[in-house]
Every structure is written in structure tokens, then in C-alpha cells.
Amino acid sequence: MTHMEDAQLVQDFLGGNHQAFNKLIGRWQDRIHHFAYRYFANNDDAAEITQKTFIKAYQKLNTLDDAGKFGSWLYRIANNLCLDELKRVGRKRATSLEALKTAPQTETERAADSALMRNEAIVLLHKALLQLPTEQRMVVIMKEYEGLTFREIAEILDESENTVKSRLYYGLRSLKKTFDSWNINKEVFSYD
């Protein structure tokens, strides 16, 4: 992350340059969208969360103490919005995941075509990620997909780095167990 450029754009915006905020959007929209997409596996939900994130950031940017931490601050907003959304629709999603606990193995076995198997495996990857406890999922997403450092993740979540690492460890272990129970392994993805 180029903290200096973000910090400069934040200062410009606070100084009255409205276009500076649109530049910040241009720099961060994809990352926030991808981050939200990992949560919901849905483009519309991700777009909505992204939009809300930037609206909130626009309204609250003057409360940001350290302009150099704009990225972490933005992720924190997005993360809180994702959690709110998960609380709102949590029951519905939990119900759909319950049905998956028994379905994957037989579906995977039935799939004869390798491409189909690969697509199914990708879907199941996503489902497995959604099955993780929220705290572990957040860390896995931020580390594996967003490439944030442990310090940045700790700042966003307001936790210690050791806590972040611990959650990542248990998250990866839990995913491994889920993949094993669904008969998904890395060979599935080498059938291209």
C-alpha cells in the first residue's frame, strides 16, 4: 500500500479538493469490492458494501487521526459493514450452509467431467470459507486475498498480531479439515 499517496489525497480532500476523494475511490474500490466479495460470494452484495463503505468514509474522513492509515481505516469500515450485513442475513446463510454439510461429497463424486469438478470445487471453496467463524474468516481473507501484513490486520481488527496469527492458524486448519471431509484436494485444480 502506498500510504504516502493515500495520506496526501486525504489531506487534499480535507483541504477542500473533492476530486481527491474520487481518486481514493479509484485506488481502493477494487480491493474493498474483492474483500466484500470474499464474504458474500455475490457481486451485488459486494458492490453494495463497497458503496456504503465509501459513503461512510466520505462522511467520517475528518475523524481519521492518521491519514497514513487510510487503508486500514477503510478496511475497518468495510469489515464492520460486512459483519452488520452478516448479522442481518446470518440466519438465512446459516440455513443454506447446513444443507451443504452432507451434499458436497456425493456431488463431487458424481461429477465425471474434470472441468465440472473444478467448478464445483471452486464453489465448495467458497462455501468452506463462509463456514469459518467470522473472526477467522476475516483474517484469512485479509491475509490470503488482500495481502495485508499482520500489523495492518491487527490495526484493522484492533487486536494483537499474535491473536491475528492464531486466528489464521486455526482458520487454515479448519479449512483443511473441511476440504478433506468434502474430498477436495489440489489435484482437482490441476485438471485444466
Binding site: 474483492h34 465509501f54 490470503e144 479449512l175 476440504f179
Partner: peptide
């Protein structure tokens, strides 16, 4: 765990369809 990481990297992601402007 390393294999799990490799598998996670296989998951595609969709990019936003339009650019927000405030």
C-alpha cells in the same frame, strides 16, 4: 495448511462492474 493456501488461491473473484464517483 500449505496445500490449503494453494487451494484458496484458486478461488476467482469478480471485479466491480462500475466505478463509483462521489
Amino acid at each position: 495448511m500449505m496445500e490449503t493456501r494453494q487451494m484458496l488461491q484458486q478461488m476467482p473473484v469478480e471485479s466491480p462492474t462500475e466505478q463509483f464517483v462521489m
